[in-house]
């Protein structure tokens, strides 16, 4: 995974509070992306109790399609402002992802709606592999550098010169996420489609008897989730500056963990879980190196002191363990509170 555009640990003069604020800003940005992806998982789960294992790949497709559009527009030297290019790219990625999501449900999940849980999980894994390898063929095996069309501007959050900052990209990601979450909540709680979705989630048979076209509602759920995933893909690509055919897998898993953390099937839970997971990851990656730094123990062992002279960051766990946190959170949540923070029970009822 690519380096995040943060300045963690770079400036030893930055006050501790600033480091903390910086980690929080980074975590919230990351968490906003997780939250948007987690919404896709949670919507599908809420409505048909299926873990759409291939949802992460939809995010990847979104990032890839947007990459192609951006590269083409930049290459065409049209007199477009950078923001417009980004918006056009996103608007292209959304229908592409929606089509992928729609097809996925139609081809691989709908025929298996009455099958045991194992079956759709395995088709999902199959789809995931297919999408990844198609992306590999269409785009490339190597990471694609996202054209940096937006000039990154950093704003100081504290009076310190080397203190915490927030970039315009981060602000954009956070704001866009909030807008999308709000729109989704409005859709689910204020529209006829939303009522239909909630009815199908409660009891699809009865909803069908009440005249709701269940298949249409489920299709639309996939389509909406995929649209959100497309935006998340563009955000992720823009933030990290790269897109890769395997980027969807780990992102999807983390977003799934976020959905479980918040309580799967619960929209508010997915948002909360996403933000929390982002913050946990940022703080974890930011501090675990310091916390497990063996150089604190230099006084105990001369050989340790010697090695610390060469490498003052000699830690048991460095930030390369960042990806572990999501899994540990996932396992802890499922073990101690399988319903998540805001959700219903997940474990088998007696």
């Amino acid at each position: 995974m690519a380096q995040r555009p943060d300045n963690r640990g770079a400036e030893p003069t930055a006050p501790i509070v600033d480091t903390l604020i910086q980690q929080l800003v980074n975590g919230i940005t990351l968490g906003s992306v997780y939250a948007i992806v987690a919404l896709g998982y949670t919507m599908v789960y809420g409505i048909i109790q299926l873990i759409n294992f291939a949802h992460g790949e939809v995010v990847m497709i979104g990032a890839m399609v947007a990459y192609t559009v951006i590269a083409a527009l930049v290459g065409a030297h049209l007199p477009l402002p950078p923001l417009a290019i980004l918006v056009i790219a996103t608007l292209c990625a959304i229908p592409a992802c929606m089509a992928v999501g729609f097809t996925m449900e139609r081809v691989a999940y709908r025929p298996l709606r009455r099958a045991p849980r194992l079956a759709p999980l395995i088709t999902a894994i199959g789809l995931s592999i297919i999408l990844q390898n198609l992306a590999l063929i269409i785009w490339s095996r190597s990471p694609l550098p996202y054209p940096q069309i937006i000039d990154t501007v950093s704003y100081h959050l504290t009076p310190h010169a080397n203190g915490a900052t927030i970039t315009n990209v981060q602000v954009g990601i956070i704001c866009l996420s909030i807008v999308m979450m709000g729109a989704l909540l409005l859709l689910v709680y204020r529209t006829k489609l939303g009522i239909a979705m909630r009815a199908v989630a409660q009891n699809s048979q009865v909803a069908g008897l009440m005249g709701i076209d269940i298949n249409r509602v489920i299709s639309l759920t996939f389509v909406i989730g995929s649209g959100l995933a497309a935006v998340a893909g563009v955000m992720d690509g823009t933030y990290y500056g790269v897109a890769h055919y395997q980027m969807g897998f780990i992102l999807g898993l983390k977003a799934f963990s976020a959905a479980v953390l918040g309580g799967i099937g619960n929209l508010g839970g997915a948002m909360l879980g996403g933000l929390l997971l982002g913050v946990i990851e940022a703080l974890g990656a930011g501090y675990v190196g310091d916390l497990t730094n063996l150089c604190h123990l230099s006084g105990w062992s001369s050989s340790l002191a010697q090695r610390c002279a060469d490498d003052p960051h000699l830690a048991v766990f460095g930030s390369n363990y960042q990806d572990v946190f999501a899994f540990i959170v996932l396992i802890l949540v499922l073990v101690f509170r399988p319903s998540g923070l805001l959700g219903e029970r997940v474990a088998d009822r007696a």
Binding site: L253, G318, N320, A326, F327, I331, L334, V335, P338
Partner: peptide, 27 residues
């Protein structure tokens, strides 16, 4: 810790466990 989990959750948790082991081997 995973005994009580239902099938698909179990799948994801075991997947996470596998990844944790791999990350540790790597680091």
């Amino acid at each position: 810790p995973t005994l009580k989990l239902r099938g698909d959750y179990l799948a994801i948790v075991t997947l996470g466990f596998g990844e944790i082991i791999r990350i540790f081997l790597n680091n």
